[in-house]
Computed example of a mutant assay.
Amino acid sequence: MNAPLKINNLSHKYNDHLIFENISLELFPGELLTLFGKSGCGKTTLIRDIAGLSTPHSGEIWIENKMVFGAQNIPPEQRGVGLVFQDYALFPTLTVRQNIGFALKGKNQQRVDELIHKTGLTGLDNRYPDQLSGGQQQRTALARSLAPKPKILLLDEPFANLDSLRRFQLAQDLIDLLKSEDACGILITHNRQDALFFSDRIAILGPGKNASELLQVDPPEQIYKSPQSKTVAHLLGICNLIEGHWNGEALETHLGTLQATDEAALHLQNHQGPATAYIRPEDLNICAGDQFEMSAMHFMGHVFRITCSNKNNRSKSLFVYSKTQPKTSFNIEPIQPVWIIKDNHL
């Protein structure tokens, strides 16, 4: 399978400050990959490098098997990449139709008609941006970026200004559009639910030895259930870290003996010593007993989020989800097997 985008050992410096280093990544046909990480980790800089709007310090970028950065530096207009920004960047004095057709220089109105239909803008083609809702403006920006038929679409927080319902619908439309256009995309978002729900894969950008690095690149379910580090685990939601001793077969903890998933056990081969179980709140069950005491409870709509601690060790809290309001004292049982990694994975 040919990858429309290949990045090899890419690093970026701003003056003498290293933003990220040794980024290697491939993007596959029809794929929507999400770049996820804290503010300032270099996500926007990376897609600007891909688009040619900024210049990396070192490494290579290949688009459609053509080197666009490395031994040569191809200008943005020749890279065949579409861009969609958070603020839409529509021309205020141009209509929807004129905005979409801008990159086509007024030619190929059939292509404009096709995108107006695909993006649900039928009947709005003669309106100006200030006559559109936020969702309609974003659809116009999306259609304009797709007009020249790019193979790669780069999206920087495109849903940030939309409410949850419109964000969900537009994201689903984006996925359908990418497939119908035989294109792939890289999405930047700060919303972890969007990242988990809409992505084919998630690439986590986070702190490395000298600068930001790719910490993990995997499908959403795998990266959520089997994070390779504490940083990745906490970026994607609440996670209980249960420390213990791996005896070669199981992890001995204050919650009892925990069995490892097959993948975790493979990584733990030939290891005996400190290890940590990573358990999401939904993977802990409340049961009868009085070993744990509740310290806080918050109603989240579909579940209660319970904060509790072991009566014999109140220094560390655990988080549990419960569909019903529990008593103040109870026991906790993990759903086994669990994800366990060695303690040197920070």
Results as ranks from 00 to 15, higher is better:
A3S: 14
P4A: 11
H12E: 09
H12V: 12
N15E: 15
D16T: 10
I19W: 00
E21M: 07
N22M: 05
N22W: 00
S24I: 01
L25T: 03
F28L: 13
L32I: 11
L33T: 05
G37A: 13
G42Y: 06
L46M: 13
I47W: 05
R48I: 10
G52R: 08
L53D: 09
S54L: 08
P56S: 01
H57G: 10
S58T: 06
E60N: 12
W62Q: 09
I63S: 05
G70V: 03
N73T: 14
N73L: 09
I74F: 05
Q78S: 13
V81F: 08
V81D: 03
L90D: 05
T93E: 13
T95D: 10
V96G: 04
Q98H: 00
I100E: 06
G101W: 04
L104Q: 03
Q109H: 12
Q110P: 02
V112G: 01
H117I: 14
K118M: 15
T119C: 11
L121R: 00
D125T: 08
D125K: 07
Y128R: 04
D130C: 08
Q136D: 02
Q137Y: 02
K151W: 04
L153R: 00
L155A: 06
D156L: 08
P158N: 12
S164T: 14
S164Y: 10
R166A: 14
R167A: 13
Q169F: 00
A171H: 06
A171D: 01
D173A: 07
D176K: 15
L177A: 03
L177V: 01
K179F: 01
E181Y: 07
D182Y: 12
D182G: 05
D182H: 14
A183D: 05
I188R: 04
I188C: 08
I188T: 03
D194R: 08
S199R: 07
D200T: 09
L205C: 11
N210V: 11
A211R: 05
L214Q: 09
V217I: 15
D218L: 13
E221W: 04
E221M: 01
P227N: 12
P227K: 08
I238R: 00
C239G: 09
L241V: 12
I242N: 04
E243H: 09
N247R: 11
G248R: 10
L251K: 05
E252Y: 02
E252P: 01
T253Y: 06
G256D: 04
L266S: 11
Q269W: 04
Q272W: 03
P274H: 11
Y278H: 09
R280L: 15
E282T: 06
D283L: 01
L284G: 01
A288E: 13
G289D: 04
D290Q: 15
Q291C: 07
A296Y: 07
M297R: 11
M297D: 05
F299Y: 15
G301C: 07
I306V: 13
T307A: 10
T307K: 08
N310V: 06
N310C: 09
K316W: 03
F319L: 10
P326A: 06
P326N: 04
S329L: 14
F330N: 00
N331Q: 12
V338I: 10
W339T: 06
I341S: 01
I341M: 00
L346V: 13
